[in-house]
């Protein structure tokens, strides 16, 4: 599983790299210590940086969700632009080779970004523990309520990502969209 995960991360490296960048940027903003500059290799999970755990709910939520969210809102437009061109506008090599190639590249980058929108399981677990498992004090009640659905989605996504489910989902979606559902 580990090998498949690593292969997926390297295959979809643009999205993984940018996710790691947003994660480190969030660490800088939140003043969280980061141990390494490397985004791949040396036992570091591709697309993530080795950072200290957040100390409060806000930091934990932001560090778990924001890098993925930014990857999502940037990647979705790459994907849609390429997907609409190929799937709906029906561009083929017979129409325009440059547009066809650009569309494929856009889909690749889009999928690469969309496969890297979830944090490591430990990151979302930090928030989950701080927000929902520690003794209730009434503090941050609004955040806990508002963040519940996104945190739950992120928790499920992080679990799925560990087993390369997003990659499988996108591969299946693309194959279906361009074959059976064409």
């Amino acid at each position: 599983m580990r090998a498949i995960y690593t292969i997926c991360k390297y295959f979809l490296c643009p999205g993984a790299y940018v996710h790691a960048f947003w994660e480190q940027l969030m660490c800088r903003i939140l003043k969280l210590p980061v141990e390494t500059k490397k985004y791949f290799g040396n036992g570091i999970d591709g697309g993530h940086v080795k950072h200290a755990p957040a100390k409060n709910e806000v930091s934990a939520f932001l560090i778990a969700c924001i890098p993925g969210f930014v990857n999502f809102i940037t990647g979705v437009w790459f994907f849609l632009a390429g997907f609409m061109n190929l799937r709906f506008m029906g561009i083929t090599v017979y129409d325009s080779i440059p547009i066809f190639v650009v569309s494929i590249v856009l889909i690749y980058f889009g999928v690469s970004f969309l496969c890297n929108i979830f944090p490591l399981r430990e990151d979302i677990a930090t928030f989950w523990t701080l927000a929902y498992k520690s003794p209730f004090s009434g503090k941050m009640l609004v955040l806990r309520v508002i963040a519940f659905i996104p945190a739950l989605i992120t928790k499920i996504g992080a679990f799925a990502q560990h087993y390369c489910i997003p990659e499988l989902f996108w591969a299946a979606f693309i194959v279906l969209a361009f074959t059976v559902l064409r």
């Binding site: 790299y17 940018v18 790691a20 960048f21 480190q24 940027l25 660490c27 800088r28 003043k31 969280l32 210590p33 980061v34 141990e35 390494t36 500059k37 985004y39 200290a52």
Partner: peptide, 11 residues
């Protein structure tokens, strides 16, 4: 570690 620099290519 708080000041760990972000690699230039990443920027």
């Amino acid at each position: 570690l708080i000041k760990t620099g972000i690699p230039f290519p990443a920027w």
